[in-house]
Design a protein around this nucleic acid. Structure first.
Length: 412
DNA sequence: CGTCCACGTCTAC
DNA sequence: TAGACCTGGACGG
């Protein structure tokens, strides 16, 4: 679910559904979660939320049992017994409100209401990359929120342009949360696409162009405003695009993007859009773009197809079963067979094997059992270093379709 | 069945 | 700068 917009919408969701709810008791953590217990216990408390970039803060505020009026729930910071919990969502975190009888799978932290019908606010996170910290504050290494602290965000970038961080390609820097707190993989693609900025152009180069657009005195105020509205620079887009997603009113990425009918899917112009190109950046993340990749593009890196791409390709294959160059398909995929440099494998030891018995007992999942000690399972999915697994005799086309995640490990 | 892919950090060489 | 950390959906054989 989670880039800045989804985190922000999650905080609004919590404030909306918890308005008027009184919670009680202790906070339950699933047995499987490796995150810390939340040592909070209270007869009656309320929950409110705030977001900043890719974090959400829940505030638990004790209230008098007999007084649940809004005035009592206005909880200033520092109310006695108050607790803040900072959440990061990883790849799959979200908040849900459910009836106690219907607690969703993967609900790793649970807040129970005091009165019937008993309900539960759940932090749900299937992949468990998410985390929370008790009585912490916003992660200090993260910069200002691109959505809610725009001016600070902008200044933070512009005053640190000499930082070595900006030597990297712009598409990678946009994921640096020290400067772009809230931007994630789909937002970086959309931002760069709107400006037609090559993703692997050096970040400082791109941003200095932005700096030059700072208001100049020759223009009247209204003209400056007009220009800004019509030609937002990259830092403005880092604010405006997340705001657009928020204003779609859906749940952002979470809503079923693949069915193409959601407002969010329609909003995307580049990310996961048929016809766009993809590459892996230096961190192995897929960057979606159109046009030239830019001077700092990694050599010989390519991404396999996304779900939607595969789907499209399948449809086309059916249409073109006669093997001609039909022109019916509107959404023709670019079938760049980006000539890759041939895999240069030292044929090392064949280490494939490696099938550890994936433990049978797997069901334990979210039961409050001990549940630890099932880490054997993950070995099945582990990415192989793979470079040495490439047969040298492979055709370029075939090797081109191979997983390239490991390729970055190949010293070019 | 197996492989690949996904909205993100983290930390260990 | 590689993995590690996870589950689950879509595909391919």
């Amino acid at each position: 679910m989670p880039e800045g917009p989804e985190l922000h919408m999650a905080s609004r969701f919590v404030n909306r559904v918890c308005c008027g709810l009184v919670f009680s008791g202790s906070v339950e953590k699933s047995a499987v979660s490796k995150n810390t217990e939340v040592p909070f216990q209270c007869e009656a408390y309320i929950i409110s939320a705030q977001s900043r970039g890719k974090e959400v803060k829940l505030t638990l505020t004790p209230v008098k049992v007999e007084d649940v009026s809004p005035s009592a729930t206005d909880g200033k910071a520092g109310s006695p017994g108050q607790m803040d919990i900072i959440f990061r969502f990883g790849m799959s975190g979200s908040f849900e409100l459910a009836a106690v009888e219907e607690i969703p799978k993967h609900a790793h932290l649970r807040f129970l209401t005091r009165r019937c019908p008993r309900q539960v606010l759940c932090f749900v996170d299937p992949r468990r990359f998410g985390s929370w910290a008790v009585n912490g504050s916003w992660q200090p290494a993260r910069g200002p929120c691109v959505m809610l602290e725009y001016e600070m965000f902008r200044q933070n970038v512009l005053t640190h342009l000499s930082d070595n961080a900006f030597n990297k390609p712009i598409c990678e820097v946009l994921l640096n949360q020290k400067y772009f707190n809230g931007i994630g993989n789909y937002l970086r693609a959309e931002i760069l696409h709107r400006l037609k900025v090559p993703p692997f152009e050096r970040a400082r180069t791109v941003l200095e162009a932005s700096l030059h657009k700072e208001p100049t005195d020759e223009l009247t105020l209204s003209k400056k405003v007009k220009m800004k509205l019509e030609n937002p620079d990259i830092l403005e887009l880092c604010h405006l695009l997340p705001m657009e997603v928020i204003n779609l009113g859906g749940k952002g990425y979470i809503s079923d993007r693949t069915d193409g009918s959601s407002a969010f899917a329609a909003w995307l112009r580049c990310y996961d859009v048929s016809g766009m190109q993809t590459l892996r950046d230096a961190n192995g993340r897929t960057i979606w773009f159109q046009g030239i990749p830019g001077p700092m593009a990694p050599k010989g890196s390519r991404t396999p197809k996304s779900k939607s791409q595969k789907k499209t390709k399948l449809e086309e294959d059916e249409k073109h079963s006669v093997a001609n160059e039909g022109h019916t398909a509107k959404k023709r995929k670019r079938k760049v067979e980006q000539q890759r440099s041939p895999a240069v494998p030292e044929d090392g030891p064949q280490r494939n094997g490696q099938n550890t018995k994936a433990a049978a007992g797997e069901q334990e999942a979210e039961k409050p059992e001990e549940a630890q000690g099932t880490r054997r399972r993950s070995e099945r999915n582990r990415r192989k270093p793979a470079a040495e697994l490439l047969p040298m005799s492979e055709t370029p086309a075939e090797s081109g379709r191979r997983k390239t995640r490991a390729m970055k490990s190949r010293k070019k």
